[in-house]
């Protein structure tokens, strides 16, 4: 599967992306002419020191933030050209976000959290219900539909968050340190879940992580340093054959 992704179509293409912040009158180049290609079905890991701009990059790729210059073409769409309203609609169709702190809505049950993105689709109540149950079943929480986030463990919360990201069957998933707040066992099971999504359902995943073990599970690892991405030799795994 991993090897095969190299031949597939490019799903995200970022070219010469620049993102700066001004701090105390000084301009900081967080992304400095960054290029990136992500192919369909690929699981890409991003590493880098804290403050190197990993979250900023995910936000740009997911249409949450605008770069100062450069282009992001996702699934054939130049997302920089979209109005903020259209961009919101585009996000709801194409991107599933997974956060380090899960970001479930505490007053809603697991079921309602997963149903939330489906409210933006044209599905009726019964179709939504089927979709929510499928997504929660997929992450192994079919028995916890009506639990509130504070009645779930961290690992379970992250599973609900993943179900929410999956519910609309988006084009790709963006995960920002999805195991960063979990103990080793829960982290491993979340990674197993992501592996299943990637391998069996062909989900494209871009995952930021600080954890080398998490990075190991991905097909490809890139390092973000000084505003650009560097390809990294993998420990324990041979680099993928190029194109062939």
């Amino acid at each position: 599967m991993a090897a095969g992704s190299a031949g597939r179509r490019v799903i995200i293409e970022a070219a010469d992306v620049v993102k700066t912040y001004t701090r105390g009158g000084e301009t900081v180049y967080v992304l400095d002419g960054l290029d990136l290609e992500v192919r369909e079905g690929e699981w890409l890991a991003l590493m880098g020191p804290s403050g190197s701009g990993k979250t900023t990059l995910l936000n740009v790729l997911g249409g949450l933030d605008h770069p100062d210059s450069g282009n992001v073409i996702a699934d054939g769409e130049d997302i920089e050209a979209l109005s903020s309203r259209d961009l919101a609609a585009w996000r709801s169709r194409h991107v599933g976000f997974i956060f380090q702190l899960y970001n479930l809505i505490p007053v809603l049950t697991a079921y309602q959290n997963v149903e939330l993105p489906l409210l933006l689709t044209s599905l009726d109540r019964r179709e939504r219900d089927a979709q929510v149950r499928t997504a929660l079943g997929l992450v192994g929480l079919a028995e916890r539909l009506h639990h509130y986030p504070n009645q779930l463990s961290g690992g379970q919360e992250q599973r609900v968050a993943i179900a929410r990201a999956l519910a609309t069957d988006p084009t790709f998933l963006l995960a920002d340190e999805p195991t960063g707040d979990l103990d080793a066992r829960s982290a491993a099971s979340i990674l197993d879940l992501l592996a299943t999504l990637n391998r069996d359902l062909g989900k494209t995943i871009v995952m930021v992580t600080h954890d080398p073990r998490a990075a190991d599970r991905a097909d490809r690892l890139l390092h973000l340093e000084k505003g650009v991405l560097l390809e990294q030799e993998r420990r324990g795994r041979a680099p993928r054959p190029d194109g062939a």
């Binding site: 903020s84 919101a88 996000r91 169709r93 970001n103 929410r164």
Partner: peptide
Amino acid sequence: VTEVGVLKTLGFPD
């Protein structure tokens, strides 16, 4: 505030 961020991330219009 986070809830608002999440809703916007999911694609709910402002």
